[in-house]
Design a binder for these strands. Sequence first.
DNA 1: AAATCTTTGTGATATTATTCACAACATAAT
DNA 2: ATTATGTTGTGAATAATATCACAAAGATTT
Lengths: 229, 229
Amino acid sequence: MNTKLIPPQATVKRLSIYLRFLNALSKEVKMISSQELAKRLAFNPAQVRKDLAYFGDFGKRGVGYSVKKLKEQINKILGLHKTRNVGIVGIGRLGMALACYPGFEKKNFKICALFDKQSKQLPSKIGDAKEITDVQLLPKIVKDKEIDILILTVPVEAIKEISDMVMTSGVKAVLNFAPFKLISSEDVHVHNVDLSTELEFLSYRLNLYDEPQKEDPSEEVYGIPTQLL
Amino acid sequence: MNTKLIPPQATVKRLSIYLRFLNALSKEVKMISSQELAKRLAFNPAQVRKDLAYFGDFGKRGVGYSVKKLKEQINKILGLHKTRNVGIVGIGRLGMALACYPGFEKKNFKICALFDKQSKQLPSKIGDAKEITDVQLLPKIVKDKEIDILILTVPVEAIKEISDMVMTSGVKAVLNFAPFKLISSEDVHVHNVDLSTELEFLSYRLNLYDEPQKEDPSEEVYGIPTQLL
DNA sequence: AAATCTTTGTGATATTATTCACAACATAAT
DNA sequence: ATTATGTTGTGAATAATATCACAAAGATTT
């Protein structure tokens, strides 16, 4: 099998998508083929098979993949069988929304600390009895509560000050929503998500159609490559 | 120059990141080199130059790029000079957060309609006097207000029903936050963002370090390739 | 004005990711 | 059993993306 090779980044991202789809599947569906998976998710069937084959021979020729087994395997590959302690920094509307997002707890991400500036007017508890802690205590709390991941939803003005504290806090990974590219260090994995960027990508595409280039855009060129959608 | 070639998807996404960085730059900085840009954003300088060269010869040899000119150019390339009418479907916490996100209006995305189920208990106005419209009226409002982009922040249970309505509404682009992969059609560009997936990617990486593979992961293999971070 | 330093733009190369195409296996039907 | 049908796993081919390396050109120093 394929397992000796390093799975591409792109493969890992797709695993999440496969898993989400499998989880939403009716319990009656016991087996699924790469063909069916690919069709529903607009991927290439060979790609689906190759993605899965990086981690083992999960399928059965002539039959397909056991949904149950596949879910278990992907859960394990993504490390979702382990509980991860998560903190959220910056409890504005977005932070609040994430704190209450039910999808996280389902995947074993345990939101166990919320940080904000003390000065801010806020209810001291949100949702299911989560307190808000002063951000100055972040380094201590990260250690005490063994927080693995911090989600940053601070306003961009605060990011410089906060990011220094976060990057040296001993946390292992950061998911940054502030519109500022945080760079990973040797010890801390950073993943940046920018909501404006996502909209801007759509804007670019709309703009292409509004003002077609002189080169006469063909279906192929400006059509929508499935893997990005 | 390069302009005849089709710019890669990846290039377009980076343009957003360049622009955001340039916008945050102090007004004193008049010129910037690909070197400096790349260093701050953890890209390769040649990549920065190539990205920009797809759209024209914006730089000056021996000097660099005019910050002002570059901002103007990227704005134009991404179509941010045009106002786009945006609607948000599903006014839960996330929808609310996006409705009030100041970054959108700055980039000429005009949030001009909020949709939700009428039955839901909600204030009829949020933030700067935005009303919530019953989602049944969506097709009509999209046409009347000439909405270009719809942002979907509905719960996953509702996505099937809503997506049919959205995809046939005449809207040109959709940004979907529901944990369900919506597929683009010929007429509608869809871009999916899944918040769980982003966390799961970090989880995968943490898991790699917890349980190193038998193959003895080297720095190179499991180190962090800059372009993803 | 020649030499030096800088930085762009881009061919050439390297790396990464996707798709094709088919042998190997599994099941079901005859 | 043999044939027909379906599906995986994967080498080989292709495509997309990133990086290197350097000529061309602007700026600066001598």
